[in-house]
Structures are given as C-alpha cells and as structure tokens.
Design a protein around this nucleic acid. Structure first.
Lengths: 230, 230
DNA sequence: CGACCATTTGATATGGATCAAGCGATGTGG
DNA sequence: CCACATCGCTTGATCCATATCAAATGGTCG
C-alpha cells in the first residue's frame, strides 16, 4: 500500500515536471497537500548529506521519518547547527536559489521531496501556496529568533531551553528521546560537549531531570526548567 | 510639497480603511508601492516606543528617516536587540497577530505606517503582495541566521562583523556613522559595553579601524576585518 | 565653567573552554 | 562467553576570555 502510494507520487510528479497541467494540484491546493500528492518518497542514510550550503536550492523536503540537522561551517572550522527537524517538518525552503545551510540525516530518514521549481511556478498563480511558503518562512524566522535569544544565556539555561524545546516538539509528555548526539546538541547551543554534559549532570543533581540513558531523559520538574528561561 | 504628499496619503488610506475599493492599489501593486501610496507618514520621537512585544500587530512600517531598534526583554531583565533598521527597511512585519519584539526609535524618525489588516486582506487576492511579504520575511530570516552565527564568535569577531554589517548597509565607503549607542551595540552582540569598547580599542590599536568620534568610525583595513569573519 | 552622561581603561572574578583521564555501552575476535 | 578495542559520554583540573566592579576620561549642554 505504501509502495503503491510512492509509485503514484512518482507519476504525478513526472506529469507536472514535464509541464503537463494538473488542474486539481495547481488550483486550490495548499503546500502541504502539494508535497503529499507530488512529493517523491526518498530514503536517506544516516549521516548522509541531503544538500550542501551554496548548492542550487533544487528541492523542498518534508520529513516523514527520522531526524535532520542543518548547519553552517564557519571559516575556522566550527560547526553551527541552525536547526533540528523532526517528522512532519518542512525543510530546505529557500527564497533565493541557493541553500544557505547544509542538511544531513541524523539517522536513516524518509522524506518527501519536491522540485523547488515546481512549487515556485505553482506559487505564481496559487496564492495559497505562496501564503504557505510565507508561513513556513515565518516559522523558521521564529525559530531563528528564539535561537538568538538562547545563545546569550548561560550554559545551564541553554540546555534547559533545549530540553523544553525538544519536549514540546515531540510527544510532549515527560519522557524525552533525543535523536541527536551530545556533539550535535553542543553545536546547536554554541557550547562545548563537556559543558552540555556538565549542565545535564547539574540538572540531574537538582532532581530537575533524570538522564536514564544518554539519549533518554525524563523531565522531573518542568516548572523548574521553565523558570530558567526568558 | 512633502506636506501635500502626506495629506494625500492620509486620504487614500482612509478610503481603503473604510472599505471602499481602490482598483489600482488592490490589483497589480507590490508591497513597497502599496506602502508608498497608502502609508501614513508619521514622526516618532527619539527613544519612543513604536510598538511593544505581545501587543496586537496592527501596523507595518517602512522607515524613511532615522533608525530603529527591535528587541526582546528576557525574564532576568537582559535586553537582546534583534535588529537595527535603517532608512528604506520594512519592519513590524508579523505573520501572527502579535508583535514578537518591541520596536523603538533610536533617534527622531519618520516612518510610513500602513494597517496590517489592509495589507493582509489585499494579499489574499494579490499574489505579488503575498510574495513580497514572503520575501520580506525571508530577508529577516537571513538576518536572524547571520545573527546566530555571530553570537558564537569571540568578542573581537562580533564587533568586526558588526562594523562590516553596518558598513554594507550604509553608504558603503570606509566612513561609518553609527546611529546607536555602545549599549545598543552590546545588547545586539550579546556582550557587555566594556567588551565592545575594548574590542574597538583593540581594532584601533592594530590600525584596522580608527574611532574618530565614538559614533564615527573609519574602516582602515576592511580586508583584515573580513578575515575575522566566518 | 561645571555638571552630567557616554565611553574608555584598569583590576579582579568567574563561567565555560581546554586538556586530560575515566567510565560505560556496544561490538569483535578468539 | 569472555577479553579487549572502540566510541560516546562524563568527570576532573586548569586556563582564559569576558563579565564584573571601579575609576578616569571626554564630550555635550546649560
């Protein structure tokens, strides 16, 4: 059943990529529907690059399964992770024609991939899609602004923020499965891996969290975590 | 002549705000033209608040003269300046219905102000305007991403970055007139005022810049400044 | 001229980086 | 099934960049 869906996506996609009109898609369709209908399901191996900074921004992605990090490498070699994407998130959206960050799979992933040129040309006449593109960019902007606010905080506050952010974006109970390594977290928070580790230990010492396994954290006192934020 | 233009803007604006149709504006018009045609010219005193975080996002602004800072106050009282706006820039653009930052005039300013509801309702049928809103949001996103990259750098690098950014956004020769105080710069860069001052002194000691007056800086070796960036 | 405010400079403290070692989980070969 | 290598993470010791505290300087305005 899944295979069938994938194949169908392929054929729809090809139709439109070949320039044939597709009334239901091009008229009253939103961005998410467009990706679901026309996106090509693609598997990506753990740690594989999905696209690289400064490459032509050829595709737009919706993450189905797994997790993705986007990052920039600064000229001294430091890596700044700009965002983590979880299932359901759209990524790879660029206004300009080059990617401004690189994207990598954190694990084996499944994504829906759609040609940017298709989306952009549909957007010319489809206001809903243009609005969705705006909307998606605005969501990214809010995340980036939160990230700025995060980076001026202390190490402990950054880690607390990070745990809450991940918690809110996942199932949102008190159990938290982190898909990324300590190094990824450190590069996202602008800290060293040792500082992340120490902050987690400190939060555990104050009974705020419990690090059951290194990738599995229980939030024992979310109020205390929230009190650390701004 | 200027007064006349202002009055005319007022009347056009009222027409549309009262729900009368205005074919030339609502059809083939872009966002900038819309603001120029319908924006109400407003003067804002130095240090006056233009809007506050979490207030209803009632207006969209184009800065004509002066400069503006937007910021968030974190819960421990720290102020994070998120952006500086210079003449020609659009600000106050929100996707949601509340402002996510506060905006203040750094000096006496002139702005063109337009109701958000007008822009948004025109955007429903005018794809060019929707696209321009997307575009403006994408510009903000790029700035925010650069800001993230900036905040993981050393104090010296942040200050060098800042000088280059301001230089590129102004007339772009080697003379740089800073419209903001050291405290504003510090709150933008996530540093203390003393660290900003020391970094400037250090850049001056290496003949990279010359601080002629505290608000007027000459870039003597732009290549050296650029070499500090990532 | 004198008061005030912004900025710079100096002295010291501190949080996070760095360097280094230990620990625990996972996997491999004997 | 166990010894051992490896990798990711934690913990410890020390260092350094920036914060903090304090004072001096300079520019502006009455």
């Amino acid at each position: 059943m899944l295979d069938q869906a994938v194949n169908q996506n392929h054929s729809i996609s090809r139709l439109v990529e070949n320039g044939l009109s597709f009334p239901t898609v091009s008229e009253a369709c939103d961005l998410n529907t467009l990706i679901e209908l026309m996106g090509v399901e693609t598997a990506i191996r753990s740690n594989a690059e999905i696209y690289g900074e400064a490459e032509p921004a050829s595709h737009l992605y919706k993450l189905i399964d797994g997790s993705v990090r986007t990052y920039k490498i600064l000229n001294d070699g430091r890596r700044q992770i700009t965002a983590f994407y979880l299932p359901g998130d759209i990524f790879g959206l660029e206004l300009g024609d080059k990617y401004t960050v690189s994207a990598e799979a954190i694990h084996d992933c499944k994504v829906l991939r759609i040609k940017r040129s298709v989306v952009v040309s549909l957007a010319v006449t489809n206001n809903t899609i243009t609005r969705d593109l705006w909307n998606a960019t605005a969501v990214e902007l809010h995340r980036a602004q939160s990230h700025v606010a995060l980076l001026i905080k202390s190490a402990l506050e950054r880690v607390a923020d990070f745990l809450l952010e991940m918690n809110e974006r996942s199932v949102s109970d008190c159990e938290l499965d982190l898909s990324m390594s300590r190094q990824d977290i450190a590069d996202y928070l602008g800290l060293r891996i040792e500082s992340v580790s120490r902050s987690l230990s400190q939060l555990q010492a104050t009974e705020t969290i419990k690090v059951e396994k290194s990738r599995h954290v229980v939030l024992r006192n979310r109020a205390a975590l929230k009190r650390m934020n701004a």
